[in-house]
Nucleic acid binder design. Structure first.
Lengths: 167, 167
DNA sequence: TTAAACTTTCAAAAATAAATGAAAGTTTGT
DNA sequence: ACAAACTTTCATTTATTTTTGAAAGTTTAA
């Protein structure tokens, strides 16, 4: 396999993986492309390599920047903007975890708390509902806190964590 | 908020959350419904509560059973089948982790290994590509192994893990 | 063996999500 | 202030995913 083919395969695979995890394909592909580029890439080049429209490129670059995993870069003497990805994987994982926690887990916790707080009166059905949703609330809260703790580690947290777990 | 409303809110929220994580809405809703039911539910009732077609119910129940998080149950004297969800959350998390690892992470690892194995010849561009994808391979492998380790813990792994991490 | 009671399948339809591209908006150099 | 160079927005189109429902399949009881 030669470079160009490998690069393409990587970008496509990452894109497909992204969509399985609720991140749109183009967003994941752009990120993949930037991850393996040794220098900042212009929007023009991104459009060209991924065969996507200007609007699509623009919107997804914006989204990636909102997630804090892609940065704008300015080159001296160049009018247009260039983009680079966060390449440190620990940092990347932390940022993704934070963002998903904020966007999805936190709101879900709010709902869980709400629905588990009804008074279950007397029926077994209602009692079971409250019990189950309360357990779920505790579980999700604990998992979310774990993510928070991980982000505090920050340097090479995954490696350290693996060590700890394996005892 | 009264029971019926709370239950509905829970099912809807869980469904929305599912789709953000690459699991289809109905599948997540059925699972939610079964999670909070104190007894096994017939397909008829599932169709009725979620307002979905027979085919949709059937296919998604099948998928949930493939994931190992929903079970068929037979009631004495009843012709039709009833369904229950895995209600133990540790067990649930373990099964989901295993399944996603098998379906998504393992294949991704294979591709990463492949593309990071090209010989990078001389250009800085190619060297950077190989370096980045190799790092990614190591990272994903480590994360996946961590999931495996967790599944071995099995009893209340999340709680124990939280204790360990917080030292 | 038959038919009633139930489940599964899958081609087609509907719903949802993503992409396009032209127009509007910005920024920068002169 | 102007216009060239570039970016963003968003209504419309396109692609993808999910759902439907009728037909085919299966199981069970008599």
């Amino acid at each position: 396999m030669e470079f160009k083919e490998a690069k393409n395969k990587f970008v496509q695979t990452w894109g497909a993986l992204g969509s399985q995890w609720g991140i749109n394909k183009t967003m994941a592909q752009i990120h993949a492309l930037l991850m393996v580029s040794n220098e900042a890439v212009s929007m023009e080049d991104i459009m060209d390599e991924l065969q996507i429209s200007r609007g699509n490129a623009s919107m997804n670059l914006r989204a990636l920047m909102d997630w804090g995993i892609v940065y704008k870069e300015y080159k001296a003497g160049e009018r247009r903007e260039f983009f680079t990805a966060e390449k440190d994987l620990d940092e990347l994982a932390v940022k993704i975890a934070r963002e998903r926690s904020k966007r999805e887990i936190k709101p879900a916790l709010k709902i869980l708390k709400e629905v588990s707080s009804i008074d279950s009166k007397d029926s077994a059905e209602e009692k079971h509902f409250v019990e189950q949703t309360s357990k779920l609330y505790d579980f999700v809260l604990k998992a979310d806190n774990m993510l928070d703790k991980m982000t505090e580690f920050n340097e090479n947290w995954l490696g350290r964590l693996v060590l700890k777990i394996m005892k």
